[in-house]
Design a protein around this nucleic acid. Structure first.
Lengths: 319, 319
DNA sequence: CTGAAAGCGCTTACAG
DNA sequence: CTGAAAGCGCTTACAG
């Protein structure tokens, strides 16, 4: 028990005794067992994080920021990928909760998951990232998807484009739906008729886009609502020998480093990925500290249009 | 105790009793506490993973594969980034070890770290990934860095190039040093004189490359020894208006998805990132199972030259 | 300032 | 088939 006091820096340990204890600790390579500490009611100093895909550049940046923030606060993080499958997600959440963890950070595979309701009513604090749950009100951090889409459309309108088509992949995801809504709002505001097309993979992209560009009303501009879609569309346009921005302008959503290396460099709406991670980690840690479950906090982070050349602008500097 | 037996599927529990127990569990939302289980000497069913940078595309792919493999084996994973700093790495390893974890997977920030020696002599199994420790012999999984570099040079020689310069970033890393060695070996074998240049950032890249191309013996080909370097060189060559492959051929090391989207598409040596993750996770789990510390296993995975166009080849198909 | 006691939630023998 | 006992490694009161 004197050892315990020494390690935890309690007062009332004779300096000499403390010295002996430290010496022994070093000599034996003693490490306090966290499992035992947890059992006595101490906090586990750990949080859980579940993302759909750790290999995805967006989620990996978010995860890195979360882990870094947690580490600086003395927390360790369990990290799991759901592969976009709710059942895996739920199982991993259960595993983490039973360890137990002090809190959970989650990018839900399905924002309608009913298990989230049960989870949220439990005692473990939980914060959803990027995709707020639609089944239950939880603390959440997300970005201005709707505003970002409006900015993209706005910019294309500024270039004089009227036939702006919205191209979408994974339209079941909440953020993507918000972007579509933003696109439609801005189009209607301008008295333009919105047109939205779903792509599921490169094959459908090819047929959908070639039909689109062969049709009577060829678009003058495209708004691709997420990164996967932007890449798929760029590949397809090249295959169809449709040149950007000469034949059609393009603005995407979600900025990726290598967009600056493409020809033309891609104009896109940038999400503050690292900031999203830091903010959600901080929010969760704060919830963990203040046992008093204060009111639900939903944070929305701003996005920013990064103008490069695919929209038709020339020689714009990045940043 | 009957509950314990029921949960753990022990024999000799009356069917009726088991039913009651299950009912109660469901009703109460009971979850067995892992910390308590660990304390009784059970395995924690968890492993630790430390990479330099989780936001890096290579490490995020490796991490994803590791987590997926671990999950399928019923293991949870602690994930931390060292940010390339040994002291952070060591502290995180300590944290994980004291939880405790059943084993640790590590991409060492510094392969000379002395703490690894202590760690390796402990009872926690440990496997190093990508960068074997040079301070102590541990189980490890890496790729054929030397062979890969030889393949790259070989291919450039096949194009008739003789003045092949090797460009390097982070030359302190073991894999990078191996690649340089492979490059030099193959050059000497061909009676060509190797020439190696260090780049530390885009600014030095610009001065180094412009000096190189203004000099008397302009290179006909470049071998960039890692991904960061390849991107930096591509940017710099563009700024200097040196065209690939017309003015100089280029082959890189480490394949990245978007290389196919660049003009010209980049020819590169592909490392099996996901395979690296799966293999190392499997090796660690196997070490954990067989308490008997069998002999040290060092696995080396093959790499593959992916020919695209930056080397001077035309219209090659990816794969 | 330091120690003996009890308990956290489990599991592993050991009795019934 | 089921229960009472002891112990995993800590910490938190409570005595000295």
């Amino acid at each position: 028990m004197t050892v315990s006091r020494t390690i935890n820096g309690h007062p009332y340990v004779a300096a000499e005794t403390a010295k002996k204890v430290h010496a022994a600790i070093r000599q034996l390579g003693y490490r306090p067992n966290r499992a035992a500490r947890i059992l006595t009611g101490q906090s586990s100093k750990s949080i859980g994080l579940i993302v759909p895909d750790l290999a995805d550049s967006f989620f990996s940046v978010v995860s890195h920021a979360i882990q870094d923030t947690a580490r600086q606060a003395g927390y360790l993080v369990w990290l799991a990928a759901s592969n976009g499958t709710s059942s895996i997600e739920e199982a991993q959440v259960e595993e983490m909760a039973s360890h137990p963890v002090d809190g959970i950070l989650l990018v839900p595979a399905d924002s309608h998951s009913k298990y989230l309701k049960r989870l949220a009513s439990g005692s473990t604090p939980i914060v959803t990232i990027d995709r707020p749950s639609e089944a239950v009100l939880t603390d959440s951090v997300e970005v201005e998807n709707r505003v970002g889409a409006r900015m993209a459309v706005e910019h294309l309108i500024g270039h004089g484009h009227k036939k702006i088509v919205c191209l979408v992949m994974n339209s079941h995801l909440r953020p993507v739906r918000e972007r579509i809504a933003g696109y439609e709002e801005r189009m209607r505001q301008e008295k333009l008729s919105p047109k939205k097309l779903m792509l599921s993979n490169e094959a459908t992209a090819k047929s959908v886009l070639s039909a689109l560009f062969d049709s009577a009303d060829r678009p003058d501009a495209l708004f691709t609502a997420n990164n996967a879609c932007t890449i798929c569309v760029i590949k397809t346009l090249r295959a169809l020998r449709i040149e950007v921005p000469r034949d059609v302008a393009l603005v995407g959503f979600d900025d990726v480093d290598f967009y600056t290396l493409l020809k033309p460099p891609v104009t896109t709406v940038r999400q503050p990925a690292a900031e999203l991670g830091r903010t959600s980690a901080r929010l969760l840690l704060q919830k963990i500290k203040s046992e008093a479950s204060t009111s639900t906090i939903r944070t929305v982070l701003p996005v920013k249009l990064v103008v490069r050349e695919s929209c038709g602008c020339k020689n714009q500097k990045d940043h």
